[in-house]
Design a protein around this nucleic acid. Structure first.
Lengths: 129, 129
DNA sequence: GCTTGACCTTCCAGTCACTGGAAGGCCTAT
DNA sequence: ATAGGCCTTCCAGTGACTGGAAGGTCAAGC
């Protein structure tokens, strides 16, 4: 299985797969022609990585999670800790974004949005009333 | 007013102010010794930028907003459009993050987090049940 | 056997908005 | 004169890719 097939199978761009090899997340085999060759195991690893990334885990967390996944003597506490810390980071982001959203919603609502210059959005950015 | 005082007045790091000059957002004066010199107008501009950034506007939006702010013949519609598009982007992010959060919360809740290897988090990442 | 086009390879640069650090000049006080 | 605390510029790194250039390989068709 070469890289475009692996890309199709995992729904990851080929570029991303090469990048994951670059940073040592996966180590595909190489054919005599130098082409990467992906086994079922590699595809499973890539799928795992794609899912972890889709949950927003940073790549370094993904590296740790993949190592734990492959370690039969792992403690689930180690996995849970990574997930919980990431959950905390996400919750913080949501809180921040929600505050921005509420402010912006209010400003957009109160702005006439016509051809006159008067604008509560700019007023709000220029003075802290 | 030199850069460290401007930094204190605007709560922006000096590095960030230099960066804003680099990319042409502001153009402080220069003293005979080459030091940057910030007027009240510059401080107002920096404060404006800091507030816009705090609402999550990308720097290029901030550039546009600053130009509109300084244009007395602006149409508030132009400002509103930028804000509304940014609001849409934020709402999309919140939606994505909320989905991640819900999944992660569920997984963290169902993981024992002890010294045994069995782990619903890893199970979920390795198969799509 | 040759060409064509679709693969594959590596490497370099760019994204976004800073941030850290090095190397060196300037200013004030002692 | 020296110490320290400013200031300057420039280069490199962050995270996670992404785009593109330059060139090698492969399979199909003539």
């Amino acid at each position: 299985m070469n890289i475009s097939q692996a890309a199709e199978a995992t729904h990851l761009p080929a570029k991303t797969i090469r990048y994951y090899e670059d940073i040592g997340l996966i180590t595909p085999d190489r054919g005599a022609n130098g082409y990467r060759s992906f086994s079922d195991t590699h595809i499973h690893q890539l799928t795992f990585l794609a899912r972890a990334r889709a949950l927003g885990f940073p790549v370094e967390d993904c590296r740790s999670l993949l190592a734990l996944w492959e370690d039969r003597k792992r403690a689930s506490a180690d996995v849970r800790k990574i997930a919980q810390e990431h959950l905390g980071a996400i919750e913080t982001k949501i809180t921040d974004l929600t505050a921005m959203r509420d402010t912006l919603r209010h400003l957009v609502k109160t702005c006439a949005g016509d051809d006159r210059p008067d604008c509560p959005i700019l007023n709000s950015l220029s003075s802290s009333d």
